[in-house]
Amino acid sequence: MTDRNSLAQEVGAAFRDHGLTAAITALIGGTIALLASVARKAFTNDAMLARLDRELLTERNRIERQRAEDRKTDADRLARIEADIHAMRALMFEAFQRGGGD
């Protein structure tokens, strides 16, 4: 609203000081400046959204890599636990086999 008030004030001052032609020129110039401001803000917002999209994609990729690495670590640990359980079963079976033969 401040831009519109200042635009109207500029047009009024130009009309008082220099006549109708200057007022029309000020009106056109002010309108172009206002449109440029709106366009700049729109392009800035688009650029910001594009940057946020890129950052979000990068963060998603990083998280997905971390999850994959965590899943691999968990799978390796589970495999070691299963191998230890299997080795313990074999050891206990062998111990019972020897104990029963005495």
Results as ranks from 00 to 15, higher is better:
Arg98Leu: 09
Leu56Ile: 13
Arg89Phe: 06
Asp70Met: 09
Phe93Tyr: 14
Glu10Ala: 15
Asp102Ile: 07
Arg60Met: 12
Asp76Met: 05
Ser6Val: 13
Ala14Asn: 01
Thr44Met: 00
Leu27Pro: 00
Gly19Ala: 07
Ile28Arg: 10
Ala13Asn: 09
Gln9Val: 07
Asn45Cys: 03
Leu91Pro: 04
Ala13Asp: 06
Leu52Val: 00
Ala26Met: 04
Thr44Arg: 01
Gln66Arg: 05
Leu34Thr: 12
Phe15Arg: 01
Asp17Glu: 15
Arg40Thr: 00
Arg89Ala: 08
Ala26Val: 00
Lys72Cys: 01
Ala75His: 02
Asp84Thr: 09
Asp76Trp: 01
Asp3Arg: 12
Ala8Arg: 09
Met1Val: 10
Arg16His: 08
Ile63Asp: 04
Gln97Ala: 13
Thr73Ile: 08
Leu57Lys: 15
Ala8Cys: 11
Leu57Pro: 01
Leu56Gln: 14
Arg51His: 08
Asp74Trp: 06
Thr44Asn: 04
Ala90Thr: 11
Asp3Ser: 13
Gln97Asn: 14
Asn5Val: 15
Glu82Asn: 11
Ala75Leu: 03
Val38Met: 12
Thr21Ser: 14
Arg67Glu: 09
Ile24Met: 07
Ala68Asp: 14
Ile32Pro: 02
Leu78Ala: 10
Met48Ile: 10
Ala50His: 06
Ala79His: 09
Glu82Leu: 05
Lys41Cys: 01
Phe93Asn: 14
Asp3Thr: 15
Leu7Ile: 11
Glu10His: 11
Thr73Glu: 14
Thr31Asp: 12
Gly99Trp: 07
Ser37Met: 05
Ala39Asp: 07
Ala83Val: 08
Asp76Val: 01
Asp76Thr: 03
Ala26Ser: 09
Ala22Tyr: 07
Asp3Gln: 13
Ala33Leu: 12
Arg80His: 08
Glu59Pro: 05
Ala90His: 06
Ala39Trp: 04
Ala75Val: 04
Ala75Phe: 02
Arg89Ser: 05
Ala79Gln: 14
Leu91Ala: 14
Ala33Asn: 08
Thr31His: 14
Ile24Tyr: 07
Ile24Gly: 05
Asp3Val: 14
Arg67Pro: 03
Met88Phe: 11
Leu7Ser: 10
Arg60Pro: 02
Ile28Lys: 08
Ala23Tyr: 01
Lys72Tyr: 02
Asp76Tyr: 03
